[in-house]
Design a protein around this nucleic acid. Structure first.
Lengths: 156, 156
DNA sequence: TCGAGAAAGTTCCTTCAAGGAACTGACCGT
DNA sequence: ACGGTCAGTTCCTTGAAGGAACTTTCTCGA
């Protein structure tokens, strides 16, 4: 955990960072998403310290993003995405899309996504939930919502 | 910076984290996006240590996400989003969308987004770039791309 | 012309998190 | 009863974050 808590800011980005903003957390979620569900698998795949992995998994379970489910009479557990956690995966896809575009270089994207509905390899395309047109940074105005802190300028 | 470098992993999520994964970086980008462009503004708004803010801004400029532009004969600078940085904002919108849905509670979203094209308050909706249908976690298969590390199982 | 002021950092010290290796505990199969 | 495996926990070292004070550079007002 970074020393400063983001949880209490009136900003959904900050609150989200409080759940998955610690180092390794997005990579843990990625691994769980693609089917790695056990402590040893995650540790070996990521090369993360066992101590930190245990801390991160504990936090993610506590936040309701992962579920820790026993799969044996011995103390053996699968970590699985909850609905809340599954809903985070599209954020990972958007992150990956940015990395593919700006950081992958000559080699091209390390992974591709095939869309079930159309069967094609495709990328995620952010659209407006109301009209369906593209919704990028320059396509929106930001305004204070009902949960804005009173008197504080709008901030995320 | 977290101690372990994510840069060299064959994973676009990890590489993206190497650019904006340090504590505070997404919040700095959010602030720049909504128009805060100066060191003092950012420091006051975020409550971040001046030392860490200077480090983060330096990293973001070095990575090409922000531009540091003088606005005076004195040593005074505006920090502005580059095209690369502007392209990150949709990731912030997706993060905010998740926080709005899962963490905002009774109070509701701290900020709202009005879409220019239709004039309505709306949220970002991830769609398939090929067919336009929704593209969530369960709507895709992950497969190795051209940039996958040889012999390594696909990972992001 | 002198001093106050403001922006943008830099320095320095303390505290706490990450890395990493070794250790522990529960239960299985033989 | 015993070695093996998974899932952690403990402990020590290193380095990053917090935070306050200090520095630099130029402007402007008295």
């Amino acid at each position: 955990m970074q020393r400063t808590q983001f949880r209490d800011m009136a900003c959904s980005i900050a609150r989200t960072l409080d759940v998955i903003g610690e180092p390794w957390s997005p990579l843990i979620l990625r691994d769980v998403w693609v089917g790695m569900s056990r402590f040893e698998q995650l540790q070996a795949d990521l090369g993360i310290s066992r101590k930190v992995l245990a801390e991160r998994l504990g936090h993610l379970v506590e936040q309701g993003v992962l579920e820790r489910r026993p799969y044996d009479a011995r103390p053996r557990f699968d970590y699985l995405l909850t609905e809340k956690g599954t809903d985070l995966v599209e954020m990972l896809m958007v992150m990956a899309r940015w990395g593919d575009r700006w950081l992958a270089g000559e080699a091209g994207p390390p992974v591709l996504y095939r869309h079930h509905a159309c069967g094609q390899v495709a990328v995620v395309d952010p659209r407006c939930s109301h009209c369906g047109e593209p919704m990028h940074a320059d396509d929106v105005d930001v305004l204070p919502g009902p949960g804005a802190a009173a008197g504080v300028p709008a901030a995320g």
